[in-house]
Each structure stands twice: as structure tokens, then as C-alpha cells.
Design a protein around this nucleic acid. Sequence first.
DNA 1: CGGATCTTTGCAAGCGCTTGCAAGAAGTCG
DNA 2: CGACTTCTTGCAAGCGCTTGCAAAGATCCG
Lengths: 341, 341
Amino acid sequence: MSSSVQSVAERAGVSVSTVSRALRGVPGIAESTRKRVQKAAEELGYVASLSASRLATGRTRTVAVVVPLLSKWFFAEVIAAAGRVLSRAGYDVLLTELSTPELRSAFFAAPRLQGRSDGALVLALQLTPEELAALEAQGQVVALVGSERAGASSVCVEDRNGGRAATRHLINLGHERIAFLGIQEAPGSTLGGVPPAERLLGYRDALADAGITPDPGLEFGVGNTVDAGAAAMAKALTAAEPPTAVVAASDELAFGALATLRKAGLQVPGDFSVVGYDNHELAGSIGLTTMDHGVAEQGRLAAEALIATLEGAPAAVERLEPNLIVRGSTAPPRRLRTAVP
Amino acid sequence: MSSSVQSVAERAGVSVSTVSRALRGVPGIAESTRKRVQKAAEELGYVASLSASRLATGRTRTVAVVVPLLSKWFFAEVIAAAGRVLSRAGYDVLLTELSTPELRSAFFAAPRLQGRSDGALVLALQLTPEELAALEAQGQVVALVGSERAGASSVCVEDRNGGRAATRHLINLGHERIAFLGIQEAPGSTLGGVPPAERLLGYRDALADAGITPDPGLEFGVGNTVDAGAAAMAKALTAAEPPTAVVAASDELAFGALATLRKAGLQVPGDFSVVGYDNHELAGSIGLTTMDHGVAEQGRLAAEALIATLEGAPAAVERLEPNLIVRGSTAPPRRLRTAVP
DNA sequence: CGGATCTTTGCAAGCGCTTGCAAGAAGTCG
DNA sequence: CGACTTCTTGCAAGCGCTTGCAAAGATCCG
């Protein structure tokens, strides 16, 4: 169990350096010797000391995954996908949740990854240049998900196209009064986990494309929770000329919107259409039309990019195109449906 | 950056051992010396090498969190809560997802935690005695969530009481035909992440308490997903004498049930009552009556127990009592409601 | 068959920190 | 003021593995 290279060396009748090389598959060891060493190691139940080899090599074969909030489905899903890739490649996964501004600044103020990991996979946090520099100063190779920075690998989604596609879908169905529920961080928060308002811009693009004059009164910015979505939807319904459809910047907001609509006695999609964003695990069961942006794939790709960079490849940027998934929450507005039986 | 104790020692004009002790706050160093050393360290941007101190001490100050499936809300929530406690106590969190039987057996077959962590926090997996022994043989202190084993700390929920309370709530409202949607692992799966059917037993207890003869045709065992819940609910509705309420063994199943009921045109709670189990983050927004069993608290308590054990305390077992949270998905059955205006 | 060329192995010097032990400095007390 | 504590600090021996370099053996070829 706690046997050392020494003991294996003695048992196999070779030197420690031979044991080290044999067990790690370093070329330059006779196959017969290697076998003998492996046998001895096995008989002794030998397991190389991680700390010792890390100290000697300076590499940890560990990747830190840094995430703003673990309990959100999106992050859990990305981490899971990235984790599978990483552990298959032999990397350990160190988890760091930066759920408050204090934790965030403390994390970047001290060299908290130094000697702990070879690379960092940073999800969603919009890193300041200083923060990125801090990570690099700690010897971390960094890969980003959901943002882009010079010098780091990243995978991001063409959210503007996504917002546009979601909105265009509604426009194509005949909707003209379309609300937008956007994600906006609480004013005081410096967590900075929210990506720029690309989705909102896409929404405006689509309206412009269709020659619809945007109504600022139909754009809402709220926290990314079901309840916030419900509240915003309720407010939207009180407009002088209420919308007939809504684009939500996340499925969670959309779930809230659906709850409000149901409570208001409006049929979806009969009276009102809803399109979400994320393709949340529950979106399918609920029948929500939404934008899929390959959440698991983002994790996978980012992990692969990070591993590649760790093994010497240059940093790479990957852009994912979101995809509209039409389910049962969207349909032509009632006005048109009665006209066209 | 990559300065060593040496350089700090020289700069402060002391020996390396003094630096080591000064920086770690070991008693027996004059306050003035400590100050001087700290200053030197700071000026040099010195950060102690983790691998080196781990090698020297034999402790990693890392805890492995082992979980069957990361992307389920329950696990993410537990991990998040545990992670906060652990990192506040200065422990790193190493994440291991055992999402398939192959990964599980590979994990326990090799000493994968040896030298990587001091302890393991194992969620939901019902460890075999051999698996637990394997972890202990690797020098891990282990704490369990959702199961109980001799020699390990654990926190678990009185699920039988929970099932009973959920069911009793419906009985008190006047329901008599009550279905149960239970969680059952796929037959081939050896993942073993599912706790024993305590909740089902509680359901039967409650029926027995009320003198209702249980109808095996109303008990369903399915995978723990929204869709499975929806399907099972659909089947339940086709019974010769259909139920008027259902107890679901998880909120996810309950979400599925709600979807089916809505699709079937049944009003909840007017025509049908549903009670879930978990108090899932979305349960509140959806208005689901459910059993809360302090998910985050389980993580917190388990992490605290693990830390305590790592610091020498004996293993401890904590039992949580689940709590009924009444929301809008339960009401007296229609028969009664019309009788009692 | 002898020297040149590979191959295979061992030596020893790290990697950077911790810690038991002992020595020197300082303080205490009768 | 000297013997005895009590504090502080340094020495040096690890912790267990990796790796550059050189030596020893094996192989090859004219």
C-alpha cells in the first residue's frame, strides 16, 4: 500500500530509476525488465505517490473548473461534460464555485490555483484582463466557456444569431408584438457572470429585419430565475397593447413565463407563444420551443481545447451556432389562426 | 512566483525551517521574526509549493466528492453546499462522477483516490462493503449522504416518514385512491444510486394507518425522469378506478405527472392532487406541494462531519426529518369539495 | 575479431517543504 | 550572580519520485 519505488526496485532487483521508467512506460526499458517490474509492483500493491511525482515533475495533471454557480442546470451540465473528457484524458477535476463577489475577488487576489492545477476551465465569468492575467501568472493554461479573451482558448455561442432566430421564428408565425425577457444581473452584483446582451441584440435584429419598430416597453431585464420570469411576464401582460409572444433569454425565464400565462388563463400556444433559450433538460418534457446551443458540447469542446493547449497546441476559439428546436409552445397568433383554418 | 523557501530564508536572514514555521503560524517563533519572514515572502511573491508540502506531510487537504450524476439538480445542490463548507475550511474539492457502471467499477478497482485526497464524500451511491473497504484501504476517511455504513459518517433522511407524511397529507384531505410513483433503477443498471424504497414503504404505512387497502396496481416504479413520471401518470389514469391523487418519489416525477394531467385536461388541484418529494428549485415556482428534506443541508452536514472526522472526531450519523411543504397542487378531491362548499 | 553504435540500466542530484532534536539566547529565582 | 527554565532558531534527515548523464552490455560490420 504505502510501499515506495524502493521496495519495488529491491523486489524486482533493479534500481529505482528503472522502476520509475518501467512503470510509466518510458521507452528505453527492455520489455522483459518492464514485465518483471510490473509484476513486483503488483505483488506489493504499489501505487506511486502523486505528491512526489508532482513535486518532481512540476505538473499536476489537474484542471480547475471555475464556475459562478454550481446548482444551475447549465453549469452542472457543462461541468459534467467537461469532466468526462478530462477524466478520460487522465486529468483530475478540481471544482471551484465563485458564488459571490467576495469569493470571486478573494479567488483572484491570491494565487489559489498555483501548484494545484495545470489549467483552468472558466465558465461564464466574464474575466477582466487582470483576472485572466492573474490566472496566467499562476502558470495556468486557461480555456473559457461563454466569453472570449486574447490568449485563451474558448468556446462560445453565436447568441446574437440565436436571439435573432428565436425571434424570427415568432415573426414567421405571424407575431408582431413580441416581448423579450432578458437576463440582467442585480445592480449591486459584481459577479459578472452574465454574458453581454447578445441575445437581446439578436431580438432587435430580427424585428428590424421584419420592419417592426421595437417597443422598449416590451424589453425586460431581470434576474435569471423562474420567479423573475414569471413576474416580468405578468408585467408584460399589463401593457396597453400586450404582446402575443415572448422570447425568453433562458428556459428558466420561459418556465416562469409559462406559469404566469397559465395562471392568467391564457392558452399556450393558442393565445400566446413562448420561446426559450438553452434547451434545458426540462424543456422537452414541458414542450417548450427553445434555442439549443449544445450545452454539453460546450463543456466537451472546452475541455478538449484545454487539454490540447496543455499538450502544446496553440489556443483555439470555437464558435457554436445555436439551433431552433420547435416544440409545442409556439403557434401563429390567434388572429391569424382563425383566419386561416 | 516560483521562489522557494530558500530565497525567502535568505532575504529574511533566517533558516528555511524558520520560514516554514513562520509562514504556517506554527507556535514557537518570535512575533518579530514572523513579521520579517512574512514581509520577505510577500516581497518575493512567495507561494509555498503544494506538492512539496503534501509530500512532506502526507496530507493533501483535499476531499473527493463522488457522485453518480452531476447534472441532476439534487446532486449539484448537495455538492454546492458541501463545497462551500469544504473550501471555507481550506479543503480543495476533487470531483468524481461515476455515471456508468463501468466507471463505477473501474473507480473502485484501482486505488484512484490514493494520495489524491484525505477523505471522500460519497453521494447516494449505495456502497457495497467491498467498495467502502476499498476507499478505506486508500486511506480515505469517508462520509456518506443518503446511505449508512458502519465506520463511516453519514447523513440520511427519514424517507419512510417522508413518504408517510406525504401520503397522510392526501388522506387528510379526503383522498382514498392514491397512486405512488416510485424510483426504480433500470434492470440492467448496476449503478446502485437509488436508495432503498423507503418512500414507498412510508406510503404503504400511511394507507395502512388509515385503513385503506393498498392497490398494487397504483404503485409504479420507473426511472427518475420527468418523462418517466409523465408516462407512469398516464398509465395510472387508465386504471379501472383511477386515483384522485398521487405521491411522487421525486419532484421530477411529479413534474411529469403534472404535465400529463394538464394534457389530459385535468385541473390540479381541482380534479387531481399531486405531492412531490425533494423541494426541487422549480417546485416553488410551479406551486408543487412537496416534501422538503433539506438538500443543501445534507451537503453541509456531510461536509462538516467529514471535516470533523478528518480532524480526529469519531464518525457520526445524522438523520434528517423531511418536512411537508404545502403549495397549490393539493386539495380535497372534487367529490368532497362540492359537498363542502 | 576489434572498434563503433545502440540499448539498457544505474547513479546521484534534484524537486521544495516539514519536523525531531539539539544548541544558543534570554529570562527567572533564590 | 550562577544554576535552571523557557524561548527561539538552525541542522539535517527525510517525504518519494524524476531525469540528465555516464557506464556497462549487447549488437553490428567490415
